[in-house]
Design a protein around this nucleic acid. Sequence first.
DNA 1: CGTTCCTTTGACTGCACTCAACTTCAGTGG
DNA 2: CCACTGAAGTTGAGTGCAGTCAAAGGAACG
Lengths: 266, 266
Amino acid sequence: MAAKQRAASNPESGVLSQHKVISLETLRVACKNCSLSSLCLPMGLSPEDTERLDDIVRHARPLHRNDFLFRAGDRFRSLYVVKTGALKSFAPCPEGGEQVLGFHLPGEIIGLDAIDKELHVCSAKVLETSAICEIPFARLAELTATIPSLQHQMFRLLSKEIGHDTEMLLLLGKKSAEERLAVFLLSLSQRLQKRGLSASDFYLSMSRHEIGNYLGLAVETVSRIFTRFQEDGLMCVDRKHIQLLNLPALEALIGSTGQNRRQQQQ
Amino acid sequence: MAAKQRAASNPESGVLSQHKVISLETLRVACKNCSLSSLCLPMGLSPEDTERLDDIVRHARPLHRNDFLFRAGDRFRSLYVVKTGALKSFAPCPEGGEQVLGFHLPGEIIGLDAIDKELHVCSAKVLETSAICEIPFARLAELTATIPSLQHQMFRLLSKEIGHDTEMLLLLGKKSAEERLAVFLLSLSQRLQKRGLSASDFYLSMSRHEIGNYLGLAVETVSRIFTRFQEDGLMCVDRKHIQLLNLPALEALIGSTGQNRRQQQQ
DNA sequence: CGTTCCTTTGACTGCACTCAACTTCAGTGG
DNA sequence: CCACTGAAGTTGAGTGCAGTCAAAGGAACG
């Protein structure tokens, strides 16, 4: 296999670690883009409306590894947009333990599931030092009531989240361990690429444990399949450092294997 | 085990079969309640606003078994509220076959996942003769823009759907086959009870195949576990006719078995 | 009344889990 | 600097839950 190469940067800092300390003004400008990308860009808000939206966004100081953005049971007040870094959200299981619900990369929104009960039903924990924008929901709701295209954008955002969960249901209900890992890696790859980063060379900010929990697999299974993928020349793994060497082969693994775990319906 | 007792009504008609042919006026009045229960009741819309909402609701003629409400790929125009009957929604798998995403009983809304792309990504098929209200989304969006509490109600509705999907993720990721079936039965039970029907005696409108597909299990596993539950005195099964004989025991099965399939995290 | 679908049951198999040992690495303090 | 400690990851051996294959009995439907 190709020689494992150590990264110059600190492996611990993980995905997107190149964004380190950022001046407040930089963050402010960047965050304008950030709310833009999630809420405005797709619908093309007018500059004035974008300004109004940006005015209600709060820019919190950076959070660090293992900090909680919020905990299950907390009162819901705001949505959050990841500017840099990475988080995981997870729900406590009745019997103890937890179910990882998702990993959140820059540009992605957290907290949509809490609108219903005005209560956070899951917790959000920081995986690596992160900058996060806060959008007070009450003020956002005022804005959406006066900006129809923003309202529509919010509907779309919520609907998109449902669509994403749907894909996960299919993944957990019908796919083999190999397929789940392949989907996971490609999802990360695509989301990073969307942010202008390498689609084939990145750091994982989450542990094998968390990956396994997220995908409904045991840690050992994750480890074994990473090893197998490496043996097959699909990727190169060095601790948290991942290099995808054969994207087309990974994509082929997802759909056309014909080796699904569970039978088809009807 | 207890003698299997035949039901007087036609088993094929399934859940809620007692609602048969309904006069147009009855349906109209009923549907007012229907949109009320899903959209208005929890927020307490004013009578005038409720009237405005009811005005845009269309009352389609009843659909019959195997009819499609919409198909994956159809242009998205409306949300639908089940008045009577039952439907399933399912997504096509890349390799052929399908993933059942949910079963929809009276009072429940269908189509929220299509708002994002303005395209239905899943299909909805009628399981038993059903009356369904159509809510044109464009007109609904106009209304929500002028009625803040309705807007908030829509946000809540979408958020609730995300929360429901989250529960399903936990179910598929961490629960054993027995637990999945228990959750499924109790979910049906509670939803029927909410509509004023028996929580312990009902008909399934879906096949074992569809249940298994929904829960990520093989048909044979569903059948076997139904048999086992019956042997244990938890329920009485006669084809589609279900009687839950020991609700507390079923509930106990869900959380406290300590026999989960996959290990806990961290 | 034949065809087809649905359901159930049995026998067998295999994927992924569990248990366990070992290695590596990070952090801590002597 | 190095031993100690604990967390994280890897690997191997064994096992069990649920899937697959197969067959047969019923129900539904034309």
